[in-house]
Design a protein around this nucleic acid. Structure first.
Lengths: 135, 135
DNA sequence: TTAAATACGACTATTTAAGTCTTATATTTA
DNA sequence: TAAATATAAGACTTAAATAGTCGTATTTAA
């Protein structure tokens, strides 16, 4: 159904929140989760994924929290999608570099190449949109 | 995960198959299902959805089957998505015209409007691609 | 009138997404 | 240094959406 997952929605809201509200200081998961009514545990794990992908950085312990690791203008929508969406792509075969990758219809498929072109256009859209633009 | 459903993949393959192989004559569900190893029952229902959406027309009875209802060049990828995908849209709130439509975070959501713009760009891509182009 | 096709609603199974639970680790401050 | 507050992370459960099946009715050519 071409949906962004809730996880990606939450991650976007969190990153945007940090861009607006951090002023040198750390922002806690609790603050963001409470603001938007998002599950704390779930958001906590999303934040960790964003750290692993270099989008934000963490400070553990009391007075800890998270900070953006780069300017809002240099964080692409595609960065967040890639960090959070587990199987991003219009089709199963589009995630992996190897076209046939486990597809039973690889030999008779007539739509992969055209859809790959569409996928590229969509990726371009997600690369053109930055967090800075959506503040 | 931003996937096209299998149903949409099958519908695309079916419409493309018809564009290539129909020459005045009807094409049966069985022929397409066998060619690509798609469930007959499932594809049959997809074909019916395509009929309801005016993309193809049906001929019942022996010697029956389906035909494209318009030229391949005038069938948009978006037409097929709209006919088959049940909840098309980047977010739940993007399907309906009424922004808040049941969203508990409608009052505090900071990402709807930016994502709506992205959605429009994606729709444009799906409108630019026709079945004629992917033959 | 039979065979071969579409029409369609109800149902089931499978997979994915979403959320929860639990425990461990790091860091500040009293 | 102990307590409080934060992140880190894996295992698990629940809920929802997707994919596929079943059964029956209807249409039409030969």
């Amino acid at each position: 159904m071409l949906r962004l997952s809730k996880k990606t929605e939450y991650a976007l809201m969190a990153v945007k929140y940090m861009a607006v509200n951090q002023n040198g200081k750390c922002i806690t998961v609790k603050e963001i989760a409470d603001t938007y009514g998002i599950s704390f545990q779930l958001l906590a794990k999303l934040m960790q994924q964003l750290v692993r992908n270099g989008i934000i950085e963490s400070q553990q312990g009391t007075k800890g929290g998270y900070r953006l690791n780069k300017s809002a203008d240099s964080i692409l929508l595609l960065d967040i999608i890639n960090a959070i969406e587990e199987n991003y792509g219009l089709t199963d075969c589009m995630e992996s570099e190897i076209p046939e990758n486990g597809c039973a219809r690889a030999n008779c498929c007539t739509i992969r190449d055209p859809l790959a072109k569409v996928q590229n256009k969509i990726n371009r859209i997600f690369s053109e949109t930055t967090i800075g633009q959506i503040l």
